[in-house]
Computed example of a mutant assay.
Amino acid sequence: MGIKKYRILVLLFSVLLSLLIVETPTAAAQLSQNYYAGICPNVESVVRGVVSQRLQQSFAAGAGTLRLFFHDCFVRGCDASVLIANPNGDDEGHSGADLSLSADAIDLINKAKAAVDGDPQCTNRVSCADILAMAARDVVSLVGGPFYPVELGRLDGKVSTRAIVKYSLPGPTFNLDQLNSLFAANGLTQTDMIALSGR
């Protein structure tokens, strides 16, 4: 896929993800753009720095991060539950649709979280859910898409099971009616579905 086509897909994907974020249950919390201003004022620049560095090492980390964010938001509502690893393997990351999530993207988020927690003022104060949302936004901006504000203050999920993914993400055998129904349940249109599917 050419860089220009990739950037157009990233742009469409980002706009539609921003719509999805607004529609998710975690968005019902009191989110704000300056949520961390008093407790971790450098969080945005720290995350952006890690994203920029990781994209220089692996351009594939960008698309992988957007896909990771989509899978997270579509399943439980942008709570980073996709990153939870249960000791018994019964978690979202070990389900059929999530088995192919990008290791580069997960590494990017882990490095961003470590960098944020490396600042004594920020240690254990910034949710993985917010780091994932900022990273997805920064990926879009750094590959030539728009920079858009992200409201912060999401709480990390505490539950992650394989079963929920089966009923939340489209399967490979879904027909058009099933796809339209699933995306409509998340406040998205058929056009949104086509763009998010990268078709």
Rank of each mutant, 00 (worst) to 15 (best):
V150M: 03
N175M: 03
I164P: 01
R137C: 02
Q178S: 05
V159G: 02
F183C: 00
D156S: 04
T191N: 14
Y167H: 10
D138F: 11
L176P: 03
A129Q: 08
G145V: 01
V143I: 06
C122N: 12
D156C: 04
T173N: 02
P172H: 05
P146G: 05
G171I: 08
L152Q: 08
Q178K: 08
Q190I: 10
C122I: 10
G187N: 09
T161I: 07
A184V: 07
G187F: 13
A136D: 01
S160L: 07
V139P: 00
Q178G: 01
F174W: 04
L152N: 07
G157R: 11
P170A: 06
T123N: 15
D156G: 08
G144V: 02
K166M: 02
K166W: 04
E151S: 09
V165T: 06
V143E: 03
A115L: 14
G153I: 08
Y148F: 12
P170F: 11
V139F: 04
M193C: 12
V126S: 11
S127F: 08
A133H: 12
G118W: 15
I164F: 04
F147S: 13
D117K: 12
L169P: 00
D117P: 05
S168D: 03
R162P: 00
G118F: 15
G171F: 03
G144P: 00
T173I: 05
V116C: 14
R125I: 04
C128M: 14
C128L: 15
C128P: 08
C128E: 14
R154T: 03
M193E: 13
A133Q: 09
R137S: 05
L188D: 06
D138W: 04
D192Y: 13
N124D: 13
R137F: 06
T191M: 14
G145P: 01
F147A: 13
M134H: 06
T161E: 08
R154H: 11
Y167M: 07
P146W: 05
V139Q: 01
T173Y: 06
A133G: 01
D130Y: 12
N175I: 10
V159C: 04
R162E: 05
D117Y: 12
M134Q: 04
G145F: 03
S127W: 14
G187W: 15
T189N: 07
G153N: 07
S160H: 09
Y167W: 12
F183W: 07
T161A: 05
V139G: 00
